[in-house]
Amino acid sequence: MVKGLGWLFKLNNWFSSIFKRKKSVKLGLYGSTNAGKTTLANRISLDWLGEEVGSVSNVPHETRKVQKKENITIESGGKKLNMTLIDTPGIATRIDFEDFKKYGIKTKEAKNRAKEATQGIIEAIKWLDDMDVVIAVMDATQNPYTQVNLTILGNLEARKTPVIIAANKIDLKNAKVKRIENAFPQYKVIGISAKNGDNIEELYKAISKLV
């Protein structure tokens, strides 16, 4: 009887393979605050959809909610990849509303911003379970060996989520991609400038290879 149902299993596999091929991949951007996640999300979205994901600012925690862009199809290395781009708020272990006031933000707004930022971080951590592939965005001008970076990479490793490290801000003089490569030698590190689009094609190639 089971033998007779062989054609049904084959049909099922055929359908599965079609849907697997068409499946949209969830690509998450994770990192500390001001690493350039939204700048990179905007770059990717502008390149393939022609529209931005969110606003960027030098004030930390500008992105306080997870932002999504669906149906982005990137083409690289002869491969087409349909994905949902998920830009997450920067992860931090401290949020002091007083810090926002240094940027000229009034107390009430600073408190609101801090409250929203805490919610955003909780949301970003919850989303870790849903990602198919992650770009860990790091500011190449800063010491990468931070607890936040280690926690993000450790969590992705525990979930077996494929990761690429984007060493961002290579347009700045004091950017050191090598420092990130040395800190995390087990990961593929690509130096980019999300702002100027430098080396973004390399990143697309790496994403295509990984998925």
Binding site: T93, I95, Q119, I122, I125, T151, N155
Partner: peptide, 17 residues
């Protein structure tokens, strides 16, 4: 702490800020 515990700690910290 393992990475999952660290993430849980960050979450709990955010809830308590």
């Amino acid at each position: 702490l393992n990475s999952i515990e660290e993430a849980n700690l960050i979450q709990a910290t955010m809830e308590n800020i």
